[in-house]
Computed example of a mutant assay.
Amino acid sequence: MQLMFLGTSAGRPTKTRNVTAAALVLPDPLHVFWLFDAGEGTQHRMLGSKLKLNRLEKIFITHLHGDHIYGLPGLLSSRSYFEGAVPLELIGPPGIKAFIEGVFALSGTHLEYEFTIREVEPGLILENDRFKVTADTLVHRLPCYGYRIEEKESPGPLKLERLAEFGLKPGPEYGQLKRGEDVQLADGTWIRSSEVAGKPLKGRIVTILGDTSPCDAAIALAKDADLLVHEATFAPGMEEKAAAYGHSTSMQAAQIALEANVKTLVLTHFSSRLCAEDVEQLVQAAQTLIPDTRAAEDYSEIAITRPERG
């Protein structure tokens, strides 16, 4: 599982940073990715990446400010030109449906793939056999959401040497044993799953927050996360201005991560007034609380490993 940033600037793009967008590439064999926000120019950023629009399965929108949604109409329209596109679901706050339907109606846009829109409320918003996603409201000038993505526990690897001792060759029985089911051989011998399957693999937790001032919801969404993506629009010492605009400083982001027991903190949504040296100073300050703090850069990729594998 990897997270790729396609835009890391706040408010407006710069020469090196586009406005907000990030892609979560799901583990094999799913071969799909989820997009979180789609600021203006997101599809242009995707052209410079390995991401393919026909493998985009879901789009999660945090809020309706332009630097988070103005790239949606063009991206959704262009996707019609890709063959074999999987069904796409757009998930976001109230108003996202009216925004998209209004733009498409006025522009005469018709999509050539299965597309649905769902407006969210706080709570569990998605669950399947691999993941569950929870949303909650943050503190911003517009209704804004954060998303917690939890990968479910998966079966551990089979002990192949032990299976060879039983004379069991690869086949359907392997799947049964990985699922925790015992298997009886033709000679009546029972193979116990507990004897031949390794410990279940703990799932990963990724939390991606929209624009926000520090709040309890941010801590709850990030609890014990392997990776937290948190905005850092302002530098330390600018807390009053950050609060006035519904944003956070880098140190406030680090404090949220500390209280939530986060493993890795990734700062993003940097003010266009900040130069590369300024961003580095924000990261160094946050590292006093969370040693594994990083600055998101456009096209930067972060591998999210399972806890057992470090």
Rank of each mutant, 00 (worst) to 15 (best):
E114F: 05
F104K: 03
E57L: 13
I125Q: 10
W34K: 04
F33R: 02
L75K: 01
A38M: 02
R79W: 01
H65G: 09
R55K: 15
D67L: 00
P29D: 11
K97V: 01
G74L: 05
R55F: 02
E40N: 05
G102V: 01
D67N: 14
P122L: 02
H68G: 03
D37E: 10
S80P: 11
G108A: 09
W34T: 01
H68V: 01
E101N: 07
A85T: 00
K52M: 12
I91G: 02
E112I: 00
F36Y: 14
S49F: 04
E83D: 13
Q43K: 14
P93R: 01
L72K: 04
D28V: 04
P87G: 00
Q43S: 13
E83A: 13
G92Q: 10
G39Y: 04
Y81I: 06
L64E: 11
H65S: 12
F33E: 01
L88M: 07
P94T: 02
I59N: 09
G39L: 01
I59D: 12
F115M: 09
L88A: 00
V86S: 06
D37W: 02
E40P: 00
F36A: 07
P73C: 03
I59L: 08
I96K: 08
K50E: 12
I96F: 11
H110Q: 14
F99G: 00
G84N: 14
I61Q: 11
P29R: 08
F82N: 07
R118K: 15
E112Y: 11
K97S: 14
G41C: 08
T62K: 10
G95S: 05
P122V: 01
L47Y: 12
D28Q: 15
E119D: 09
Y113F: 15
S78A: 15
I100V: 15
G74M: 06
E121H: 06
P122M: 02
D37Q: 09
Y113R: 10
R45S: 15
Q43P: 01
P73K: 08
I117C: 10
L124P: 04
I100E: 10
I96Y: 08
K50V: 07
H68K: 14
N54L: 07
G66E: 06
R55N: 14
Y81V: 00
